[in-house]
Design a protein around this nucleic acid. Structure first.
Length: 825
RNA sequence: GCGGGCAUGGUGGAAUAGGUAGACACAAGAGACUUAAAAUCUCUCGGGGGCAACCCUGUGCCGGUUCGAGUCCGGCUGCCCGCACCA
């Protein structure tokens, strides 16, 4: 082969990227008459440069995008930048620069990297969440949410990361540490803004059963996180005067067995209920619990400890006195922060009762057994038969729950309740590089939202980054000193910014009309594109981003912005990129740099390997030799096509009635492959097997020597099909080869080929013959053959006779077109 | 502890609806071409036996269902992930 026909990725990749950009190949607009397909990959944080996780994520997405486009869909495939966040601020402090400078430089670099990968984005829709043109609408929504009570401020204990010097939402605390920097999270009491996600808890949960296109494990994680439990709120009157203590319990069937009360040490009434003689001991206990760090406190082997407050309450069912304790295992944030303790039927209460010598009464008996508190070694937590429970004795504990709830309500002692583990989403962050919260505090008028005409609240540029004392906004007079929009008196602006997860909760909606000046989105355009048909990203956002985005979509629906209930119809969570048995990371020293990879092999090879080595949802083991193999494969395709170019271009029109057996057989292989590849991409997202099928066909083609004119036509069809099938995976080299094959229209604008149903019909079938389920022979039979004839052939086969001679044939099973199994005694 | 997932050659992985286990690729070995190397091409490649045709065995372990099980069911073991004193 001459030098001019050598495969040089860098040349052809630059060439086609330029063509796609200049011709705006992937720019889309709303076309109501066409089927739309909204494809989205999670947008990146502009950290500096893309990593292999991005390469994989975006390669997977690009296959789907290019394939759907060739299949005739109007494909919306946008890209942008999740551009607010802490690393920008930290870099600014370190470099004595500004977060905006760092962020926009990174975006510029990473945009070029993505372009070098040849991804089929509509770049005209690119957005960066740190642009005022983006976050201004988020502020407008905040005000609308505030007016509806969906955004509110309250003083509460919050998760505080001492290293990031900011608050974290519950979802952002992992194993007691900060999700970003792993620093141990402490509790701090602060005034914070919250979004009322709990208002949507029921709907968010309901819809986990209406998202068949989501991986089950993500739905399970979200269900667990929302944590719905059905039970009762029950009021326990105090022995003396005062408000009763309210508890939440899912085990109201054990109410008659409640012998003491456990409150969380942080319970607001803990000290109020403490008698003077117990005060010093109680205070010491509260101090001790506070000092125990969060990880220790939630460890399951933590010793159950508590302290008696000196007060008593009364069991509303039995009237018996119950001592009120503080207990270290009761969580203030769950339920009411108070638990009725039933030591016989709850393991924690049992351990506690044993330690402090508290009374026990068995109120649920296992069937056919009599438990005695004196001899019990553990709580009995299974369902059983009610005992010592007044009018409920003898009932099944499971079914009595409803009756007891009813009785409590009738008696005015409690009511059926649904409790959620989900807390409201704390969105205040004491940081600079985020969207300002559009609120003004006035001594006379209170908390006032910034009026529409004054929006947006622009993040000021003239700030200094010292790295000390939290957000620079809090000390920037020109920012926080404002006049009250209602009374005009001097007032103070909110200096906290919003959690960056707020931006990513609606960016997929903004992509529908990224330049819309009239509001968050153009409702008509969003109506055409939404919902996202396929969303692709990492599993790490299973509860965080994916729950917030679902919540925002529902809020925006209720505010009239969109008509959909859910943002993402189908979700694909891709696996991690692994090398040498570990996730790629700088600290492990096993990172592969995408720039170096593309420089050495080209983007097509990088894409091909990340798609071929494993199916998308599995972890991908990076292997340099495997990359080599993919590069070799592309070269083989390149070479084979150039070898046949002259004959193929002169080939006559294909006449399927004039083919030799060999030609017909080759054509059958081509169309069978096309069928498989189409199905693997479209229905299963199994790109690895699709690529393997094309490799297999390539092996067949390389062994074929077709010498007739019609043979050249068959080869032409075969080569064109190979190129078209590979287009979604390796778009640059296939465009080039498509052009070499004489096509004027780019492959990216060419429809996906359809397989010829006639061509794939087998003339002969291979029938496997088993004796007692073991493979013993194979038969080649005509495709049209009846069952009896196949069975007869099988039974009389010489090799089969060796195994059936002198034995009695009991049964002959025939699976049409596949197999015969002869059962002998 | 609870919930979920996974387990197939030396390696990554295939087997889509219970029907030929190991497609495709990587690595390894042998050979061709070459002065030589690289590149490329050809062959071998789960384990055991046999000169061979072929036979036995094999999908983490034990059992079951079935004419037939990598696939379904029950029980174990190991690994991974999520939640974790949630009342």
């Amino acid at each position: 082969m001459s030098a001019e026909h050598k495969y040089v990725p860098s040349e052809i990749e630059a060439k086609w990227q330029k063509v796609w950009q200049e011709q705006k190949t992937f720019k889309v607009t709303e076309e109501p008459d066409r089927k739309k397909y909204y494809l989205l990959e999670m947008f990146p944080y502009p950290s500096g440069r893309i990593h292999m996780g991005h390469v994989r994520n975006y390669s997977i997405g690009d296959v789907v995008g290019r394939f759907k486009k060739m299949r005739g869909f109007n494909v919306l495939h946008p890209m942008g930048w999740d551009a607010f966040g802490m690393p920008a601020e930290n870099a600014a402090i370190k470099n004595k620069s500004h977060p905006a400078v760092w962020t926009y430089e990174n975006i510029a670099y990473m945009r070029e990297q993505l372009k070098q990968m040849g991804l089929s984005y509509d770049w005209d829709r690119e957005l960066a969440t740190c642009d005022v043109s983006y976050y201004r609408w988020e502020q407008k929504l905040f005000v609308e949410m505030f007016k509806r009570g969906l955004a509110y401020k309250k003083k509460s204990f919050v998760n505080w990361c001492p290293s990031c010097e900011t608050v974290l939402a519950n979802e952002q605390v992992e194993d007691g540490g900060c999700w970003r920097c792993d620093t141990e999270v402490v509790q701090k009491e602060l005034e914070q803004w919250f979004f009322k996600i709990t208002d949507y808890a029921e709907e968010l949960l309901d819809f986990t059963n209406k998202l068949p296109g989501w991986p089950e494990r993500v739905l399970i994680m979200q269900r667990n996180w929302i944590g719905k439990s059905i039970g009762c709120e029950i009021d326990f009157p105090l022995e003396g005067n005062g408000e009763p203590i309210r508890v939440f319990s899912t085990r109201q069937d054990t109410l008659f067995g409640a012998t003491f009360m456990s409150l969380a040490p942080e319970h607001p009434r803990a000290l109020e209920l403490t008698t003077p003689d117990r005060r010093s001991e109680v205070e010491a206990f509260i101090e001790k619990v506070k000092k125990t760090d969060r990880i220790m406190r939630t460890a399951d082997d933590l010793e159950k400890e508590g302290v008696f407050t000196g007060s008593y309450c009364l069991n509303p069912a039995t009237g018996k006195k119950m001592p009120v304790y503080l207990a270290n295992f009761v969580l203030v944030e769950y339920g009411t922060g108070a638990v009725m303790a039933v030591p016989t039927h709850d393991q924690r209460d049992f351990e506690f009762a044993v330690k402090y010598n508290l009374p026990m009464v068995v109120v649920i008996q296992p069937e056919g057994e009599q438990l005695d508190p004196a001899t019990m070694t553990a709580a009995f937590t299974e369902p059983g038969i009610m005992a010592n429970s007044g009018q409920f004795d003898g009932q099944k504990s499971e079914t009595s729950k409803e009756a007891i709830a009813h009785w409590l309500e009738k008696e005015g002692k409690g009511k059926k309740t649904v409790n959620f583990r989900l807390r409201d989403w704390g969105v205040s962050r004491q940081r600079y590089w985020g969207s300002p919260i559009p609120i003004i505090y006035c001594d006379s008028c209170g908390t006032v939202p910034v009026p529409d005409k004054d929006l947006p609240v622009v993040l000021p540029k003239d700030v200094k980054f010292t790295g000390e004392g939290g957000s620079p906004l809090a000390t920037l007079e020109s920012f926080y000193k404002v006049d009250c929009p209602i009374c005009g008196k001097p007032a103070r602006r909110e200096t906290d910014t919003m959690d960056t997860f707020v931006e990513s909760s609606w960016y997929f909606l903004r992509y529908c009309s990224p330049d819309f000046e009239g509001g968050m989105l153009d409702k008509e355009k969003a109506g055409y594109w939404m919902s996202v048909d396929q969303y692709i990203g990492g599993i790490e956002h299973a509860v965080l981003h994916l729950l917030y985005a679902r919540f925002f979509t529902k809020v925006m629906r209720d505010l009239g912005y969109v008509d959909v209930d859910e943002p993402f119809t189908n979700l694909l969570t891709q696996g991690m990129v692994i090398k040498d048995g570990a996730k790629m990371s700088k600290s492990k020293g096993n990172v592969v740099d995408p720039d170096a990879l593309i420089k050495r092999y080209g983007a097509d090879t990088a894409r091909l390997f990340s798609l071929f080595a494993a199916p998308p949802e599995k972890d991908l083991d990076w292997n340099e030799q495997g990359v080599d193999g993919c590069f070799r494969f592309i070269n083989r395709v390149w070479k084979l096509i150039h070898e046949h170019l002259e004959t193929v271009i002169k080939a006559p029109v294909l006449d399927v009635t004039a083919l030799t057996d060999e030609e017909r057989s080759l054509r059958r292989a081509v169309h069978k492959t096309l069928k498989k590849v189409t199905e693997d991409i479209d229905e299963r997202f199994h790109f690895n097997t699709a690529i393997a099928a094309v490799m297999e066909l390539m092996n067949t083609l390389q062994g074929s020597r077709l010498s007739t004119p019609q043979g050249a036509s068959v080869m032409k069809e075969a080569l064109e099909t190979v190129v078209a099938m590979l287009a979604p995976f390796i778009p640059h080299v296939t465009e080039e080869l498509w052009q070499s094959l004489g096509h004027k229209t780019p492959l990216s604008a060419t429809p996906w080929p359809l397989f010829d149903a006639e061509a794939i019909i087998d003339e002969e079938l291979l029938i496997v013959v088993q004796v007692n389920g073991k493979l013993r022979s194979k038969l080649s039979v005509p495709a049209v053959i009846d069952e009896e004839a196949v069975k007869k052939l099988a039974v009389s086969d010489d090799r089969i006779k060796l195994f059936t001679d002198e034995k009695q044939i009991r049964k002959v099973i025939y699976v049409p077109g596949k197999l015969v199994n002869i059962v002998v005694a």
